[in-house]
Design a protein around this nucleic acid. Sequence first.
DNA 1: GGTATATCGATAGAGTTATATCGATATACT
DNA 2: AGTATATCGATATAACTCTATCGATATACC
Lengths: 219, 219
Amino acid sequence: MIQNYNSKKLYERLPIYVHFLNSIQESNISSTTISKSLNLGEVQVRKDLALVSGKGRPKIGYSTKNLFKAIKKYMGMNHASKAIIVGFGKLGKALYDYAGFSELGIDIVQAFDISNTTDFVKDIKELDSYCLENEILFGILTVPSTEAQATAEKLIRCGIVGIWNFTSVRLNVPSHVVIQNENLAASLSVLVKSTLDKKVGNDYEKSNETNDSYTSKKH
Amino acid sequence: MIQNYNSKKLYERLPIYVHFLNSIQESNISSTTISKSLNLGEVQVRKDLALVSGKGRPKIGYSTKNLFKAIKKYMGMNHASKAIIVGFGKLGKALYDYAGFSELGIDIVQAFDISNTTDFVKDIKELDSYCLENEILFGILTVPSTEAQATAEKLIRCGIVGIWNFTSVRLNVPSHVVIQNENLAASLSVLVKSTLDKKVGNDYEKSNETNDSYTSKKH
DNA sequence: GGTATATCGATAGAGTTATATCGATATACT
DNA sequence: AGTATATCGATATAACTCTATCGATATACC
Ligand SMILES: NC(=O)c1ccc[n+]([C@@H]2O[C@H](COP(=O)([O-])OP(=O)(O)OC[C@H]3O[C@@H](n4cnc5c(N)ncnc54)[C@H](O)[C@@H]3O)[C@@H](O)[C@H]2O)c1
Ligand SMILES: NC(=O)c1ccc[n+]([C@@H]2O[C@H](COP(=O)([O-])OP(=O)(O)OC[C@H]3O[C@@H](n4cnc5c(N)ncnc54)[C@H](O)[C@@H]3O)[C@@H](O)[C@H]2O)c1
């Protein structure tokens, strides 16, 4: 594949830029400044921006507004994507209440549970009708792991094609469905192991550095 | 570097194996079976296991018990790592109550907050004395983003060298400290974008597949 | 207007991670 | 005991991702 670079890692960084651009006042911004503010590689930022946006100007940088729009367009953040949460427990509640997703064009429009139903938490039985009526594409799975596979299948039957999976189960789904596993336990383990590596292997700098887990890179 | 393959991705998979091994009854298990159960590449699993464990036997596989022990040893999961949570809000509470971390040798031993103090949530003012007394190495950062940098610095002053960062801030920390960013918003964006890509680019199979975000791999 | 330079874009290369392939071997089965 | 084969381990290759470098250029400043 020639120069058609479209990667998961890129997709993770673009929202970070969006959040950053949202937070600044300047009407122009350079890739250099962005890279320093976010602890990312300078070349990497430039490459990312070049891919999604129009030209930048030497000595000036990019128009903040245009850059912002370009990234949002590229990521499909303009038309708000509607998502539902299934499993309104501790984690589901935290995610449901979090305001930061809307900045990225994602609205969590409804929560479902098998028992904790309230005004704004519907019974899981209503899943079908709700999803079909509202054309929901995304589901956030925060049910107990024992219920994970069965619940995922329910979601898929309702037309959901993207599942954010917080359970520890590796779901089995048809090929048209996208799964994003959010394995928090694994993630914490990575931190622990990386930290221990660093503490032990202080002989010379370990070559383990990656953009997201380590700090003080020499950009 | 020759064959000293020690990657972040590997560190993410090993806990998945641990969880799986914990859940099965069989006293022997083959890499083939593991790979099918977890939707991972067969060769990849074999390579992972070869790196951390003793030999497997043709037609039999590995001893479940030995494999389990080997991975835990490799990952440093034997001596329990103690972590604290700072910011006992919705997310902090969910993490604090989650039982699944102990399987991976991690104990969340204490929570701190600036206001919601209770019997088991200490005031942030006690952070110093607690961390030093108890030799805490890991901190989970779930304070509001406005407090993130300042709080991270507090943690570091208390001897913490690994921070699991749930805030949207890209922390600036000294080089001996490891940061694991858990950017949930970015992760959700990846799901949305990947799903949209797939829906649109159905001309021929997109070459975007990765082990963690997509399903129905042809292993 | 002329010069210095911050920033850009492009290319090449290095590093990391995953997959395909194949011969070796211990085990199951006849 | 002899044969078929599931599974292993190793090597080679492919795919993906990041970084270093450098010439081009629009802008700032004299
Ligand atoms: N809390 C964490 O920090 C954490 C960390 C990692 C993974 N997880 C995983 O996330 C999931 C949720 O965790 P949690 O802490 O919020 O658990 P929880 O028990 O607080 O919440 C689970 C919710 O799902 C509901 N539920 C049960 N069966 C259901 C069904 N069939 N349909 C719809 N709803 C149903 C329950 O009523 C409950 O409200 C679990 O799978 C857990 O393993 C949680
Ligand atoms: N909830 C989510 O789903 C979600 C998703 C992505 C990111 N985040 C991030 O995670 C963090 C926590 O989110 P939340 O939803 O739990 O928020 P929250 O408001 O429920 O919890 C924050 C807690 O931090 C405490 N706090 C405030 N200042 C403090 C300080 N200086 N020291 C110690 N404690 C302090 C508050 O009292 C509160 O209990 C935020 O930075 C948020 O942006 C949350």
